[in-house]
Design a protein around this nucleic acid. Sequence first.
DNA 1: GGGTGATCATGG
DNA 2: CCATGATCACCC
Length: 224
Amino acid sequence: MNYPSPPESLDELLSRARAMAGLSLGQLALGLGWDVPPDLKRDKGWIGQLIEQELGATAGSRPEQDFLHLGVELKTIPIDRTGKPLETTYVCVAPLMDTGGLTWQQSLVKHKLERVLWIPVEGERDIPLAQRRIGSPILWQPDEAELALLRQDWEEILEFIALGKVSSLTARHGEVLQLRPKAANAAAKTECILEDGSVGLTNPRGFYLKIPFTHAILRRAFAL
DNA sequence: GGGTGATCATGG
DNA sequence: CCATGATCACCC
């Protein structure tokens, strides 16, 4: 019942993921010997870490795919009763300095999203955490149209950053990909390019996938 | 501080 | 009502 070691193949990873479908978070936590927190207010990453553990992802905070040897990134995604995502999906941090030679092809966004194993989890707050159920996994690779949308947004956002306009970027920019603060708090600062080309300080930012985009991925997978 | 896992909570 | 901007915990 316990899977501490990394899966050796994509098939093994998918088998483990399928075996979780239908289970509650409480059942999964029990099997792993984890305590269930009262809510997620102080444990926002708990579900993601629980599922990482169950699937044998290498615990770590490296800017890499979760299953590097399989070329797979793992994402849990909270959904409502209709299957719609309740939150945007964090992808990775955004470069705010030395953006000169960066291309979409070599970007961290493209690398992370090349192949994603989505694990939907019931996320409505009126369902006690332990009772929330895990859904069927979806192994997704962006199709040509999705890649084009991602690339267009990424390039537009990087252009703003390179021109020193990061402070004028809001989460409203981008069709499918948005840039938002990603830090411990608003006091966190990192270097960025200013409009005159000099170096300034701003809140660290991350790339996030907008809800309609991830919703479409789930709908396609379940043919809803 | 920079990265991972994300959700919280309130203003528009 | 819900997406944006802010925040939480942990690792190194």
